[in-house]
Design a protein around this nucleic acid. Structure first.
Length: 108
RNA sequence: UAAGCAGGCUAGGUAGUCGCGGGCGGCCUUGGGCCGCCUGAGGAAAGUCCGGGCUCCACAGGGCAGGGCGCUGGGUAACGCCCAGCAAGGGUGACCUUAGGGAAAGUGCCACAGAAACAUACCGCCUCUGCCAUGCGGUCCCCGCUUUGCCGGAGGCAUGCCCAGCCUCUUGGUAAUCCGAGCGGGAAAUCGCGGGCAGCGGUAAGGGUGAAAUGGUAGUGUAAGAGACUACCGGCAGUCGGGUGACCGGCUGGCCAGGCAAACCCCGCCCGGAGCAAGGCCGAAUAGAGGGGUGAUGACGUGGCCCGCCGAGCCCCUGGGUAUGGCCGCUUGAGGGAAAGGGUAACCUUUCUCCCAGAUAGAUGACUACCCUCGACAGAACCCGGCUUAUAGGCCUACUUACCGU
RNA sequence: CGGGCCGUGGCGCAGUUUGGGAGCGCGCUUGAAUGGGGUUCAAGAGGUCGCAGGUUCAAAUCCUGUCGGCCCGA
């Protein structure tokens, strides 16, 4: 994949220095820097069992991969899945992700 | 056909595009990247409830403590698992359920109720003794009243025979203050039955209580009773037969012993501890942090000694380099499939064949088309054998019950 | 991976060791008292003891399985 992952100690830095937007499925943090794009996904235990959490993480990864050619590839992105994300379809999740990126003015 | 019962199998498929983990090959190439091919979650991967393998530590042997298991015989590396059977309970049945050793080794508990919860006796029943009250009935005797009576004979009811009783008849005898019967009364004796109180005993039939009261039902028996005795049922002991065994069947004796050990316990068997973050290798590195001990012909306290303090070197201990430095362990294994043989089965043996995830924040998703029943529960983390739990459906086999048809 | 604790009325808890009555405080309802409210007093309602099965005459309590929550260690 073009994007790397965010190491665990960097999450606090993204929460402190980045900006956030949210809707009913996802919360997105974005921290701008000149380095290549990196992605972090948070799927807490509240979502469900291991199988459900893995499915949500895969779907978010796929969403991000889908929109990646349309945005400027730098900075750190953190997506936090809310409880409703475990029940929705991939299409709803993709709509939620593009909505958040538009509101962050990263996507037309 | 419907309902049910038991067991087994399966867990959407096909094609295409993009994306991800691993392996192999090639190329560029230090780190790394690109291309091609192959491969890539489950029946429960889950819960972590048991049992093992593996690794390290400990360990002469034995015992105590602690924990687990508990019908019998097999299977297995082992098990609390599996198979086959036995017993008990449930179901019309197929079949299901069962932690199912020991209650005369000991301790403990059995609330309330009840006399009493395991050793006894409240009410009751009965014998005997003592005391107190004396009642009722029968026999005999006496008195009064009433009555044609009494003793016979024949016949009938009535039947193979006889007797008592009753009815009819009179050709018998006897008597008229007798005799017999009935009613009423009286007194002594005698016999039988009975009341109250107290006491020594017998009894466990009955009453009542309870979840449970010392075998159950019927009879004999007895002062009243009781397995005291008898029959059937139940249980125990002995013995014989069958079975490897749990156990089953027969015969004989004989009725004494409540329940709870998922209460302590006894008996038999088993169990060392920790866990892949186990454990090992490499680099930084013969670097260096902290503490303790020892401590030089040492330094300081004006010189020496004692003493105090500092202290090179040596020895010991502890911590750090983030569970996230890298690598190994890491997937060839009590492995899968097929065939043959043994065994009722679980399972075992032999031969052939296959390689089938190894990630390290953790890889399987998205889109398109078609088909069907429109797809549930759910994601490996050292590896196996089980158990338990979750689960949309679909398929197969054997069997039971009910109804219909032939 | 290993270990421990908890689940009882709406809320917080006791009772579980040693099995027999399901309780305490706050809250709720009704009534009294006050012009009204609060306080106070009196009365009352409300619980499948997380769930399922078993042992027992009898289970919140004992045993087994299971579900959910919390905590600790490496």
């Amino acid at each position: 994949m073009v994007s790397g992952r965010i190491p665990r100690p960097s999450y606090g830095r993204v929460y402190e220095e980045g900006r956030s937007v949210a809707n009913k499925y996802l919360v997105m943090y974005y921290r701008e820097d000149p380095l290549p794009v990196r992605l972090g996904i948070v799927a807490s235990k509240r979502l469900g069992k291991a199988c459900v959490r893995n499915r949500v993480k895969r779907r978010i990864t796929e969403c991000f991969r889908h929109v990646l050619p349309l945005i400027e590839p730098r900075g750190e992105f953190v997506f936090i899945a809310r409880q409703r994300a475990a029940l929705c379809s991939y299409q709803e999740l993709l709509g939620a992700a593009t909505d958040l990126l538009k509101r962050m003015d990263l996507l037309e």
